[in-house]
Design a protein around this nucleic acid. Structure first.
Lengths: 126, 126
DNA sequence: ATCGTTGCAAACTCTTTGCAGGATT
DNA sequence: AATCCTGCAAAGAGTTTGCAACGAT
């Protein structure tokens, strides 16, 4: 008998937060957004549910340099991320072409790369 | 009278650690290397001195996605960083050409970008 | 003898975990 | 009713800070 999973208001609120946001969310941001659906939802619950959603493959982690980890809906095609230097929000960048010619030291082997753009988002550009 | 600065064994040990390493160091790595010069040097001292060296402009912070901040000697020309997925050490990449054509959403303005390469360092490639 | 610096320990922040009560099936 | 899930509070990990003692000038 596989362990059963129950539907709760908190779980729904957290999933809704990510679906409504349209951008990667930190645990704090997810907490604030989820609290609009379920008042009094706790941080621990947000952390636990994000862990579960990561294991389920519903979310993936977005590691930002010098910042807390964000999470976004999985299943999107390859893309990079933009962080606003003013409000610190992170956005997805689609169709951002990057050409790399890494010159590695002798003996080094590259297996992947990450790329981040910084600047001002639309709200902060005003 | 400007605030005087004193020369201490701890301070020298921490600077030596960065000069000998030839790669960006985390506070932990700096602590371990500094302890080879001054036994019993404390974490607090490492943190405090790194802060001072940052203010002095002798060090600059290297923020790695999903990892602790590293610090490297300042004054080098523009370069990116390589992180070994095996030993987690960070190395500088010189002469790594990156061509970017970011397609930003309407109203967004880019001011900079960061680039990271992952793979196996020489020691871990064996 | 000053007073900058250090080491220790406490404080803080972010995240994880134990546990008892509450909610879903 | 069974047991998954939540909230609270305590516990960890990494970093910062207060304070008395140390030590460079």
């Amino acid at each position: 008998m596989p362990t059963q999973i129950r539907k709760t208001r908190q779980k729904d609120a957290i999933r809704a937060a990510f679906e409504e946001a349209n951008r990667p969310l930190s645990t704090d941001e997810a907490l604030v957004l989820a609290q609009k659906h379920v008042e009094g939802i706790s941080v621990a619950t947000v952390y636990r549910n994000i862990s579960t959603l990561l294991e389920d493959g519903w979310l993936i982690a977005v590691e930002m340099p010098g910042g807390v980890t964000r999470y976004e809906l999985s299943g999107k095609e390859h893309h990079h991320h933009f962080q606003c230097t003013q409000c610190a929000k992170v956005y997805e960048l689609t169709g951002c072409a990057v050409q790399v010619k890494p010159k590695l030291p002798r003996g080094f082997r590259a297996t992947g790369h990450e790329f981040y753009v910084y600047g001002l988002c639309a709200d902060c550009s005003i």
